[in-house]
Computed example of a mutant assay.
Amino acid sequence: MYNRIIEQFIAAQKAAHAAYAAAAAFERETVAAVPDHYLSVDLRSEYRTERELQSFCRSVAGGVVNRARREFAPAGARLDIDNQDEYERAGLDIGEALKAGKIPDLDGLWTSMARRYGGHGGAELAYQQAAQRIVSGFGLNRKREVQRTASVVVLRKHAISEACYGRSARKVGYYSCQSTADCLSGLATFAAKAGHHMLAGGLNRVNVHQVEYNYREKHSYPGLDIVFFKEAWEFRFSHQVADDLMLFLGEYGEAFMQEAV
């Protein structure tokens, strides 16, 4: 399927070149006395055509990987797949293939990913990645203390905040945005896997680049309250959600809990 798309694009390039060549020839015949540098129809160089084809193939290849990210991720989860890793695993080298006059085998790329992530492969990897983001976000591999009270289990996420311009509210600082977003993404994946769908939906709607809060302000979700401090977000889980989270981390995150800092 994908190879055929590239073949169609090459055919379109050839057709366009032929059409421009015909237009250029007609112009020369019609105004034969005009010097070449005054002619209007410009034929693209072979280099520009090759560069366009390579760019197109890379774009299609990226689309193939994006499709795998969507189709092989479990519902409500994020699946991280590195483009270059997948190209190498499938033996795909777009530049070398085109240089050899061959069609880059993007069908083979899809087959490689379907074999690797199909069935439960994508789901297992997505859950492992989510567990890793949670462990990293809360520093659980550093044996950070987990506070358990009569009503909640507390985990703290380091998140430096900064003042919102012209307002008393605060927002996540630039250097804390990605780690905070990753932690929330991991928790949303866990929540969906554990059947806490309303919690997963709420966490997925949090945009760390836009959320604003005041000191000690609380945002509540089913089974979880998040309390905001100047340099941290405090996650207060219900006992049920916390117990499910520990089971999730025990199944998918044990290796990351042992990682050295």
Results as ranks from 00 to 15, higher is better:
His239Lys: 14
Val153Ile: 06
Ala200Asn: 04
Leu187Trp: 07
His239Arg: 11
Thr30Gly: 07
Ser112Tyr: 03
Leu98Glu: 04
Leu245Cys: 02
Phe248Trp: 03
Val41Trp: 09
Glu231Gly: 09
Gly250Asn: 06
Ala19Ser: 12
Gly91Asn: 10
Pro104Cys: 04
Gln128Phe: 01
His17Met: 13
Arg69Asp: 04
Leu79Glu: 01
Ile81Leu: 13
Val261Gln: 15
Ala12Met: 12
Arg133Phe: 03
Ser238Lys: 14
His239Tyr: 01
Ile226Pro: 01
Lys99Tyr: 08
Lys99Gly: 15
Gln147Pro: 12
Ala150Thr: 05
Val31Ile: 09
Gly250Thr: 00
Arg156Glu: 06
Ala126Met: 04
His209Gly: 15
Cys183Phe: 00
Ala22Val: 06
Gln210Asn: 09
Val227Ser: 03
Ala25Pro: 02
Glu29Gln: 08
Ala15Met: 15
Gly63Met: 01
Val64Ile: 05
Ala77Met: 13
Val154Gln: 11
Val41Thr: 13
Tyr174Leu: 05
Glu259Cys: 07
Ala32Thr: 07
Arg116Phe: 10
Asn66Pro: 07
Gln54Gly: 13
Lys143Trp: 09
Tyr20Val: 12
Gly223Val: 05
Phe190Lys: 03
Arg28Lys: 10
Met198Asp: 12
Arg167Phe: 14
Val172Ser: 01
Met257Thr: 11
Asn66Ala: 09
His17Trp: 06
Val208His: 00
Arg156Thr: 15
Gly62Ala: 05
Gly253Met: 03
Arg133Asn: 05
Thr180Val: 15
His196Gln: 10
Ser45Gly: 15
Ala33Pro: 03
Trp110Met: 04
Thr149Arg: 08
Ala24Asp: 10
Glu124Phe: 12
Phe229Leu: 12
Leu98Asn: 10
Ala123Ile: 05
Ala12Tyr: 14
His17Ala: 11
Ala260Asn: 12
Ala33Arg: 08
Phe228Asn: 00
Tyr221Lys: 12
Tyr252Gln: 04
Val146Cys: 14
Lys143Ser: 06
Tyr2Asp: 02
Ala181Gln: 10
Glu251Trp: 06
Asn204Thr: 08
Phe237Asp: 00
Leu187Ala: 02
Thr49Pro: 04
Leu245Gln: 00
Val31Trp: 11
Tyr165Gly: 09
Gly63Ser: 03
Phe72Trp: 02
Val154Ile: 10
Glu27Val: 04
Val65Ile: 10
Ala255Thr: 06
Ala68Ser: 07
Ala21Thr: 06
Gly137Phe: 00
Gln258Gly: 13
Ala126Lys: 00
Glu7Ile: 11
Glu88Tyr: 13
Ser176Met: 02
Tyr213Arg: 08
Ser136Pro: 02
Arg89Asp: 05
His196Phe: 05
Thr111Gly: 15
Arg115Glu: 09
Gly118Asp: 15
Glu7Asn: 06
Arg70Ser: 09
Gly122Gln: 01
